[in-house]
Amino acid sequence: MDVFMKGLSKAKEGVVAAAEKTKQGVAEAAGKTKEGVLYVGSKTKEGVVHGVATVAEKTKEQVTNVGGAVVTGVTAVAQKTVEGAGSIAAATGFVKKDQLGKNEEGAPQEGILEDMPVDPDNEAYEMPSEEGYQDYEPEA
């Protein structure tokens, strides 16, 4: 019985440690998101679009440190934060509304985080759909 109880105690310690790591990862992701939003706020009209992409990228980098179902929630929060940063930029006159959601080359930025393969159960990952990809044929 002692062996059984000791095993359960060790398992509990492992769960607590994993929860603490997840909590730490979420806190880091939130900190990076805040950094990115402050970065966007300090940019001029020309830099705002690039700044919004930076927020998304920093958040995406930190999301990889967070495991399990938390990833889905962090990704949703990050996307809403990026959308909010863009709205703030438009409201303050840093950028025109028609410039939001495009990178410096004018290509749409939507789907940055949505296409990231995420499995809350950590069982399997699927690649994003290939609808947006084109076949590449090298020139002879």
Rank of each mutant, 00 (worst) to 15 (best):
A56F: 07
K32W: 15
G84E: 06
L8R: 00
K58L: 14
V77S: 02
P128I: 09
V74S: 01
Y125W: 07
A85C: 11
V55L: 13
E131F: 12
Q79D: 03
T33F: 15
E13G: 04
V49Q: 10
S42M: 09
Q24V: 07
S129L: 06
K10V: 14
K96R: 09
K80W: 13
E126R: 09
S42W: 15
V71T: 03
M5V: 08
G93S: 07
E104T: 09
V82W: 12
K12H: 15
G73M: 14
A30W: 06
A85E: 02
Y133W: 11
G132S: 03
S87D: 10
L113F: 08
A90L: 14
V3G: 01
A89I: 12
D121W: 05
L100P: 13
K43Q: 05
E61I: 06
K96S: 11
K60D: 00
P108W: 09
D98A: 03
E123Y: 05
G41P: 01
T54Y: 15
K58A: 14
L38G: 02
G41T: 13
E123D: 10
F4E: 00
G73E: 04
V48W: 15
V55P: 01
D119I: 10
F94L: 08
Y133K: 03
T22E: 00
G7S: 15
A107W: 10
V52F: 04
S129T: 10
E114D: 15
M1F: 00
G132A: 13
L113M: 07
P128D: 10
N122I: 07
K96V: 14
A69H: 09
E110D: 12
Q109A: 02
Y136S: 14
K43I: 14
K80N: 03
A53P: 01
E57S: 06
G84S: 10
A17G: 03
P117A: 05
V15C: 06
A30T: 04
L100E: 08
E137Q: 06
A30E: 00
P128Q: 06
M5Y: 01
A85L: 15
E13R: 05
E123Q: 10
T72R: 08
G84C: 12
K43H: 05
Y39V: 05
Q24C: 03
I88V: 05
P128A: 09
E130L: 07
E137H: 06
T33L: 06
A17D: 02
A29C: 11
A85W: 13
P138A: 12
I112D: 06
G47H: 14
K45N: 01
D115K: 07
T92Q: 03
A29V: 09
K102V: 11
A53D: 02
E57A: 07
S9G: 10
K45E: 00
G132E: 07
V40G: 01
G84W: 08
A91W: 11
E137T: 04
G25E: 08
G41S: 12
G132K: 07
E20P: 00
T33H: 01
D135H: 13
T75I: 11
N122C: 06
E28N: 02
E137M: 05
T59W: 14
